[in-house]
């Protein structure tokens, strides 16, 4: 009963707008960094920026920050298994 009637509070409008502006800035940074030749670092930086953007989409837009902790654990486990498949695959390719 308490589960059903528990109101799901939505954060304020302004937090969404701030996150959106921040995401636009990060997109600009990605494009700018791509123009500079940093060798192998450019890919790492692009993926790092994409990960930061994803973090904010997941926590604010997708409400993970305001959800029960169980949701965050779920998402962490899902991403963890994706990471395992990537790491195992590359450890195989790297030693061929």
């Amino acid at each position: 009963m308490s589960e059903q009637t528990k109101k799901h509070h939505s954060p304020s409008y302004s937090i969404y707008i701030f996150v959106w502006l921040f995401l636009l800035v990060l997109t600009g940074v990605t494009v700018a960094v791509a123009g500079i030749n940093l060798g192998k670092m450019t890919l790492a930086i692009a993926l790092l920026i994409a990960s930061i953007k994803s973090y904010f989409v997941l926590t604010i837009f997708m409400h993970l920050k305001f959800e029960d902790r169980m949701f965050r654990i779920f998402v962490f486990v899902a991403l963890f298994f994706l990471a395992i498949s990537l790491i195992l695959l590359f450890s195989d390719y790297s030693f061929q």
């Binding site: 799901h8 997109t27 990605t30 494009v31 791509a34 450019t42 890919l43 692009a46 993926l47 920026i49 994409a50 953007k53 994803s54 989409v57 997941l58 837009f61 997708m62 409400h63």
Partner: peptide, 26 residues
């Protein structure tokens, strides 16, 4: 509506990775 939103944000999330990996090949 919230669930529809979650789906829509996932579509956004995937694009966040597709964009640098294809268009800004580094």
């Amino acid at each position: 509506l919230e669930s529809a939103g979650l789906y829509w944000h996932l579509v956004d999330l995937i694009w966040i990775f597709l964009f640098p990996l294809f268009y800004l090949i580094l």
